[in-house]
Nucleic acid binder design. Structure first.
Length: 116
DNA sequence: GTGGTGACGTATA
DNA sequence: GTATACGCCACCA
């Protein structure tokens, strides 16, 4: 057992999987992911997992994950503080001042992935 | 085994 | 409405 010793435990994988489910041009929040995992309140763990997502396989569209106010909290993890913003704009998400415009409009809920 | 940290969120003053 | 404090618990040294 425990053959996944050197593999990330389910927690990170769960977060990665949800982020991978985020459609293009949409964004989600850490709290929404945390709640979808059942770890509501532990939104920090989601953000922590996202930080590791930078070196995850396959690559995770972490630029689609922002905080509760639509702020690009983790833009630093992309190597360039503007890369995350550029990516979002490239996806069709309007971002100004490192913040998502009409956040609620592009917000995507992992629990309501069929909602659009 | 212990301590500290953190891409957040909620509660309270 | 703004400011501050605390809680969450997984990962790293």
């Amino acid at each position: 057992m425990a053959r996944e010793t050197n593999k990330t435990n389910n927690f990170f994988e769960q977060v990665y999987e949800i982020v991978r489910q985020v459609p293009e041009g949409r964004v989600t929040s850490y709290g929404a992911i945390a709640r979808a995992l059942g770890t509501a309140g532990s939104s920090r763990m989601v953000g922590y997992a996202m930080r590791a997502a930078s070196g995850a396989h396959p690559p995770i569209p972490a630029h689609r994950v922002v905080n509760r106010v639509g702020l690009l909290s983790g833009k630093r993890a992309f190597g360039s503080p503007t890369l995350m913003q550029q990516l979002l704009n490239n996806e069709g998400v309007t971002v100004v001042d490192d913040k998502v415009v009409d956040f609620a409009r592009v917000f995507w809920d992992p629990q309501s992935e069929g909602d659009d």
